[in-house]
Computed example of a mutant assay.
Amino acid sequence: MTIDIEEPISRVDLSSAFEDIARQRRSVYFYLDQDVPGHLLERALQLAVLAPSHHHTRPWRFTVFHGSARAELAAAYEKAAVRIGWHPGRARCRAFDAPAMVVIGCVPDVSHPRVRPLEEEFATAAATQNLMLALTSMQLSCALSSSPLQLSDEVEQAAGIEGGRVVGVLQIGYRDPERELFKRPQPGTAGVVRWR
């Protein structure tokens, strides 16, 4: 499936729609035991890859562990936990925290003479934010993790990321309304924005 980026934008108030999506996006850690439809994941990933990248290198990589395929991720978590001295059983369970888990990688285009690895990571971060906002617009919830467990060689191998590295794992699902959201500070620009 591809998205026609040249198709005309509808006449809805884009600013208001974006503000609603940005404000609704929250990190969610408790999900219903309900499958995430594959077509929604595919649509969100198609929107993720609309992110900008220097020299059109597209360094992002997304590996989806959905449903029973999460067992592969669980095995990688378990191996990583044994190596770094974490509890392997608890680590294994982390792969089942949500109905879908997406390993996000960054593979810099080292063949391009003007590409800088830091720019490739920025592009991957932009694609990740696109993905999270797209999921939010579809009434799906997510949370990004980047512990030593997720950023391990074992997860990199399970996800098939060659020539780069894992930058995080995104858990995706429908939020469990019985579980309270973690409180977050009121976002604001005070102290983080300067005008000259």
Rank of each mutant, 00 (worst) to 15 (best):
M1L: 06
R11V: 09
V12P: 00
D13N: 15
L14G: 07
S16I: 10
F18Q: 11
E19N: 12
E19P: 00
R23V: 11
Q24F: 08
Q24K: 12
R26V: 01
R26D: 00
S27N: 11
F30E: 14
Y31N: 08
D33L: 07
Q34E: 15
L41E: 12
E42C: 10
R43Y: 11
A44H: 02
W60S: 10
F62H: 10
T63I: 10
T63A: 15
T63R: 11
F65G: 04
G67T: 09
G67L: 07
S68F: 02
A69K: 12
A74N: 03
A74F: 04
H87Q: 14
P88N: 11
R90L: 15
A91Q: 04
R92N: 07
R94D: 05
F96C: 01
A98E: 06
M101I: 03
C106W: 00
P117R: 07
A123T: 07
T124I: 06
L131I: 04
M132K: 08
S146V: 08
P148C: 09
P148V: 09
L151F: 07
S152F: 01
V155C: 06
E156N: 12
A159D: 12
G160Q: 05
E162D: 13
G164A: 11
G173R: 01
Y174Q: 14
P177F: 08
P177W: 09
P177D: 14
E178S: 14
E180Y: 02
L181I: 07
P185A: 15
G191S: 13
G191M: 12
G191L: 11
R194V: 12
